[in-house]
Write a protein that binds this DNA or RNA. Structure first.
Lengths: 234, 234
DNA sequence: ACCTGAACACCGTTCAAGT
DNA sequence: ACCTGAACACCGTTCAAGT
C-alpha cells in the first residue's frame, strides 16, 4: 500500500520513460525493491503492465533506468554545492563527492543492491566517474594510480560500503543465554570486541555500529594511502 | 542443462540438508544463481520440489545454507595451508586468508552476490571473522581499531571486491565509431586512462583490468594503512 | 503510435493426502 | 517421518487485437 492514490486523477498525462522510472523509484522507496514489479509500477501509474514495454525494453532496462536516475540525483546535488570555498585539494573534493553520494543513497536504501547487479554502466555513472577520475588526475595522479584508486574505492565512490554482516538485534535477543554462553567460549575475540564497541556508539543504525563513522574511517584510510603513493610517484 | 543426469541412478539415498545444499551449489556453478529454483534443485535430486521443505525452511534458508557451505570450503582450504612457515606477521596472515577466500570465490562466482543479500550471518562466517579478528588483536590492534578494520576491509575479507563497473567488451565493440568520438570529447580523462591501461594488462578477465592485481593492490593499501594506525596507537 | 486483454511458462509456498 | 500432487497467488513477457 503506497500512500499516493493508485489511480491518477488527471485526465491522463502521457506515459514517458522518466515518469515510469519516477514511479518505480517511489515504489522502491516506500515498499522496497521487491515491490517493484512491472504490474505494480503500471498500477501506480493507472495503466496496464504491458504499456510499460513501449518505454522500457524489459525489467532489466527499468532497473538500469532507476540507477541512472539515482546517479543524476547525486550529480544535481553536487552541482549545487560543488562551488564551495575551501574544497580545493583533490582529497577534500573526493571526500565531498563521496559523502554527497552517500546522502542520496541513504534516501534510497535499495539502490546499492540494484547497482551491484547492473551489468552495464548507465550514462550518468560514466559521467560521475569521469569527474572523480578528473579530480585525481588534476591532483597529480598518474593514470595508473588513478585506475588502482578507482578499484580500491569501489562502491565507496558511490557512497556505500558493502556491509557484510548486518546482524539483526531482534534475532540476537531471541537466542539468549545459553547461546551467549557458547559464544563466550568459542568466540572470545568477537565477544571482547562487542563488549567494548556496544557502549561506545549510541548513534548506531543497527545497535552495533555507527555506519557513517565507519564509512568515513574507510574512505580516509584509503585517501591517505593514495596520497602517500602519489607522493612517492607510483 | 546440467551435465549430470537429472535422475539419480542409486536406489535413492535419503534426502539431507547437506545433499540439497550441494545440489544447489552445483546448479549455481553450472548455470548461474538464477537457475537455482526450488523446482530445479529438486529435479536435480530426483525428487519433488515440496520434499525440500522438510530440510530447508524456505528459499532464503536454502541461500543461507549455500553461503555457509562456501565459507566452510574456505575454512577447509585454510586448515590445510595455514600451518605454513614464514607467515608469522598479522599482515601476512590476513593476506593469506583473504587470498584463500578469493580462490574459493572465483570457483563460485555467484557467491558474492548471494552473500551480500544475506540478512543474517551463517555460523561458519562468524567463525571466519573470529579468526580474522583474533589475528588482528594478537597482532597488537586495539578492539576499536580492529573493528574499524573489519568495516574497511568489508567484502575483501571474504576475497571479493565489489566491482561496480563491469563494462562488457562485446557491447562496447558494437557501438563503435561515432560513439567513441563522442566519448573522446566528453570524457577526456576516461579515454586517457583507458588508452593507457588497455595495453598493459593482458590477463584481464574482461579485457580491461587484471582483477587479481586490483584486489591485491586494494588489500595491501588497506593493510599498510592499518599498520600505520596501529603503530601510532589509535 | 500507443495501449490493452488474454495467455504462456514460469515462480515460491500452502495444504491435504498419501506411505 | 518423510514425500507427493494439486492448487494458489504471484512473476516477466509474447502476441494479436484494439484505438
Amino acid at each position: 500500500m503506497v500512500t499516493k492514490a493508485e489511480r491518477e486523477p488527471q485526465p491522463r498525462l502521457p506515459l514517458t520513460r522518466r515518469r515510469i522510472l519516477g514511479a518505480a523509484i517511489e515504489l522502491a522507496d516506500a515498499e522496497g525493491i521487491a515491490a517493484v514489479t512491472m504490474r505494480r509500477v503500471a498500477r501506480q501509474l493507472g495503466v496496464e503492465a504491458m504499456s510499460l514495454y513501449h518505454h522500457v525494453a524489459n525489467k532489466e532496462d527499468l532497473l538500469d533506468g532507476m540507477v541512472d536516475e539515482i546517479v543524476r540525483k547525486i550529480e544535481d546535488e553536487l552541482g549545487v554545492f560543488t562551488v564551495e570555498k575551501g574544497t580545493t585539494g583533490w582529497q577534500q573534493k573526493l571526500r565531498h563527492m563521496m559523502l554527497t553520494a552517500r546522502r542520496v543513497m541513504l534516501r534510497h536504501p535499495w539502490a546499492p543492491a540494484v547497482i551491484e547487479t547492473r551489468t552495464k554502466m548507465p550514462p550518468s555513472l560514466i559521467r560521475y566517474f569521469e569527474t572523480i577520475l578528473g579530480t585525481m588526475i588534476e591532483g597529480g595522479f598518474s593514470y595508473d594510480l588513478a585506475h588502482h584508486a578507482m578499484h580500491t574505492l569501489g562502491s565507496r565512490a558511490l557512497g556505500f560500503n558493502q556491509e557484510l554482516f548486518v546482524p539483526d538485534t531482534s534475532a540476537e535477543e531471541q537466542e539468549s543465554n545459553e547461546m551467549f554462553a557458547a559464544m563466550m567460549a568459542e568466540l572470545p575475540y568477537m565477544v571482547g570486541m562487542l563488549s567494548e564497541i556496544s557502549h561506545d556508539s549510541p548513534d548506531s543504525t543497527l545497535g552495533w555500529c555507527d555506519d557513517q563513522t565507519e564509512f568515513e574511517f574507510g574512505i580516509d584510510l584509503i585517501l591517505d594511502g593514495l596520497e602517500r603513493l602519489r607522493d612517492q610517484g607510483t
